[in-house]
Design a binder for these strands. Structure first.
Length: 369
RNA sequence: UGCUAAGACGCAGGAGC
């Protein structure tokens, strides 16, 4: 049983659910670990419903679940966004008196967040006898996701730093809370703590700091942290590029993009959106076309965010024909791309076409905002 | 009483006005 359970786990980690099933089905006896491993596997490959069914099946077979099993079940509920299933699992957990388990509580908070019930999440968080870094991170993240930024920042300020073992994740989310309100002062205090605890050059924490400073418009601070991150990936580069655009330094943003590529860092879709913003802000049509070519080369022309940015860029650079060429070929147009297109028409004095597109938008039941 | 097999939670960058 131990060997088979390990095999199941290995197949799941390698992404082969079929092989895992093969082993599971051939097992003469299965224990809680083998069932739990399978439930996790189903959740990981997006089969939340099947995962719940399997856990039901497990109970029917008289196999007693443990806390690991319920972590898997809660993950399944979260992936389905099913508050009803989640509450049912919560009930079972209470009746088994597992509410003192920190993993269980953390998963409950995360599940309730993902099922859209921040108050259920709060109910769990508030009653926890002890909380760790994950508990705080998960709760603050939940508040941020449902746009309660102020509450998130207030909660961040209640973190018991002296008794908590911090990790990169908690710093990342606290900085995100500061960023969401452009609370630079609070952010700088967190930064001091980060330096004191030696997390500044951590990729995750450093990137969060760069992004915070970039969004708050203090590019000197962003630079300072950026240069201290030893192994940059594309994320902090993108934050820097967007920060420069936001601070009206589009030219520098384009230079930085150039520099990034010279360093052998591959841009991704996020980066291109930033770079297109830079071109738009500079109205540099030539540069924009050049970027467009690079996007085509990668086959990303019709990713929603990219197409909208292309439409916006061409519109702002006054090349309405090229804007239209991209817009008309978009697989799915939305309010944002349509608005960008309308603005383009307006900018070049084609008000009639703008109105025509507006009418067509409504015919296609696109809700204007 | 202790040790001994297998499965566990959260976290960084993006489009129009």
């Amino acid at each position: 049983v131990f060997v088979a359970s390990t095999l199941i786990n290995m197949y799941i980690k390698c992404g082969s659910m079929e092989d895992a099933w093969g082993v599971f089905n051939k097992m003469p006896t299965r224990n809680m670990v083998s069932w739990t491993a399978m439930i996790f596997g189903l959740v990981k490959c997006g089969q939340g419903q099947k995962a719940l069914e399997l856990s039901q099946h497990m109970l029917e077979q008289g196999v007693e679940p443990d806390t690991f099993t319920f972590v898997a079940v809660l993950n399944a509920c979260a992936s389905l966004g099913s508050l009803e299933e989640g509450r049912r699992a919560h009930e079972q957990i209470r009746s088994r008196e597992w509410m003192s388990d920190i993993y269980i509580c953390n998963c409950l908070i995360d599940m309730f967040n993902k099922c859209g019930s921040i108050e259920d999440a709060w109910g769990v968080f508030d009653k926890m006898p002890t909380r760790n870094a994950v508990s705080w991170t998960t709760m603050i993240m939940g508040l941020l996701k449902c746009r309660q930024e102020k509450r998130a920042l207030e909660l961040s300020q209640q973190i018991p730093w002296t008794t908590l073992e911090p990790d990169a994740g908690i710093f990342a989310v606290v900085l995100k809370a500061c960023t969401s309100l452009e609370a630079l002062e609070e952010g700088k205090q967190v930064h001091e703590r980060i330096i004191k605890l030696g997390f500044e050059s951590d990729l995750l924490v450093g990137s969060s700091l760069v992004d915070m400073y970039a969004k708050c418009g203090t590019m000197e601070d962003a630079w300072r942290v950026f240069s201290k991150i030893p192994k940059h990936n594309v994320i902090p580069w993108t934050s820097m590029i967007l920060g420069l655009v936001k601070s009206r330094q589009g030219k520098k943003a384009l230079e930085l993009f150039q520099h990034m590529q010279e360093q052998g860092v591959e841009p991704d879709a996020f980066t291109f959106v930033g770079v297109l913003n830079a071109c738009a802000s500079q109205t540099s049509l030539e540069e924009g076309r050049h970027i467009h070519e690079q996007i085509i080369k990668r086959g990303w022309e019709y990713e929603v965010f990219i197409s909208s940015s292309l439409v916006d860029m061409y519109g702002k650079c006054g090349s309405i024909e090229e804007a239209w060429r991209v817009f008309s070929k978009m697989p799915t147009q939305n309010v944002i791309s349509s608005t960008a297109m309308i603005m383009g028409f307006v900018k070049c004095g084609q008000g009639e076409k703008a109105l025509e597109l507006f009418r067509r938008m409504q015919l296609e039941e696109m809700e204007p905002d």
